[in-house]
């Protein structure tokens, strides 16, 4: 019975894991590549959902709604970057400020605290109407989409600008002496990161059939959990490994959550459980003397 239950959770974990994978991918860019602890994520995820839902309700084709969500996420990330680089506000605080501001912005965009999308056509509606098990086309679609984004990201980080961005997170002083404006790299990177997160928010809203002002709460912690799980299995020696780890980690994270729920974990305790998971993963090395913390970050 229990075993049967585990198998039942696989399709839903795949679907959700892939839908949320771009959050983890975005966090890879901010936390891992730029070494910037960006907390904008909670706000920009809901921003993506808010923008796409409002635009769909206004009769805009879903694809344009998604594009707009991505652009809005990019701008939100850039704002955090500008707060940090131009106004010299601490990186953590800059993210928290944007996250808080976005709460009001998202309410303005939606006009209320949630929008139902079940009765309107979304990007996923044609897939849901196919004459097969709903999971198959949805998972296939998310899978292809996520891996296209992954490969484009990997390619970007092999370009001249991509190198400069990686070096900004690795050794800011060094790449600055080579003539790179590291402030611009931070702003651009955070823009990209939050564009991915908002993209995911837009997909998730359509997948679950609504967007909600609170849908982004805890997203940063969940994303970190996904990255840590993925990196444990896949490693982080190259960019393509890091991005793959984000996707795989996201799926496994959703799988663990689904199993937890099946075993009787109360949905209300989910965020606490996730937080505990991250604390364990980050804190464990510190308990062993002489080991450094797992997360190397700038500006904190």
């Amino acid at each position: 019975m229990l075993f049967y239950g585990f198998w039942r959770t696989i399709p839903i974990s795949l679907e959700q894991g892939l839908a949320y994978a771009l959050v983890a991918l975005g966090i890879v860019i901010s936390f891992r590549i730029l070494a910037f602890p960006d907390l904008t994520v909670d706000g920009s995820f809901a921003l993506g959902g808010a923008v796409v839902s409002r635009l769909i309700m206004e009769g805009v084709p879903p694809i344009y709604g998604i594009l707009m969500a991505i652009i809005c996420g990019f701008i939100a990330g850039c704002c955090t970057g500008l707060l940090n680089t131009r106004l010299k506000i601490n990186s953590l605080l800059a993210g928290i400020l944007m996250m808080t501001i976005l709460y009001s912005v998202n309410l303005r965009i939606m006009g209320r605290s949630n929008i139902q999308l079940l009765t309107v056509n979304t990007l996923l509606t044609p897939l849901e109407n196919l004459d097969v098990n709903r999971f198959i086309p949805i998972i296939a679609f998310f899978f292809v989409l996520t891996f296209i984004v992954k490969f484009l990201t990997d390619m970007f980080f092999q370009t001249q600008i991509g190198f400069a961005m990686r070096a900004t997170g690795d050794n800011e002083q060094m790449i600055r002496t080579l003539g790179v404006n590291t402030d611009n790299m931070t702003v651009l990177g955070l823009g990209m990161s939050n564009a991915f997160v908002a993209f995911s928010g837009a997909l998730v809203a359509q997948d679950q059939g609504f967007s909600d002002i609170g849908m982004g709460i805890g997203m940063i912690v969940a994303g970190l959990a996904a990255i840590i799980i993925g990196e444990t299995l896949i490693g982080k020696t190259t960019v393509s490994r890091m991005t793959l780890a984000a996707i795989v980690g996201s799926i496994i994270y959703k799988f663990i959550i689904a199993i937890g729920l099946r075993l009787g974990l109360a949905p209300t305790d989910l965020k606490m459980a996730t937080g505990g998971m991250v604390i364990l993963a980050l804190g464990f090395p510190a308990l062993k003397k002489g080991k450094e913390a797992k997360l190397h970050l700038r500006g904190v």
């Binding site: 370009t159 001249q160 600008i161 190198f163 990686r166 070096a167 690795d170 790449i175 003539g179 790179v180």
Partner: peptide
């Protein structure tokens, strides 16, 4: 940059002071 490869480090130095674009 420790996390990057030898050739990637050299490539960054190769572009000292030059604009960087989306070329490999």
């Amino acid at each position: 940059a420790a996390s990057m490869t030898i050739e990637e480090n050299l490539a960054m130095a190769d572009l000292r002071g030059q604009p960087r674009g989306l070329r490999w």
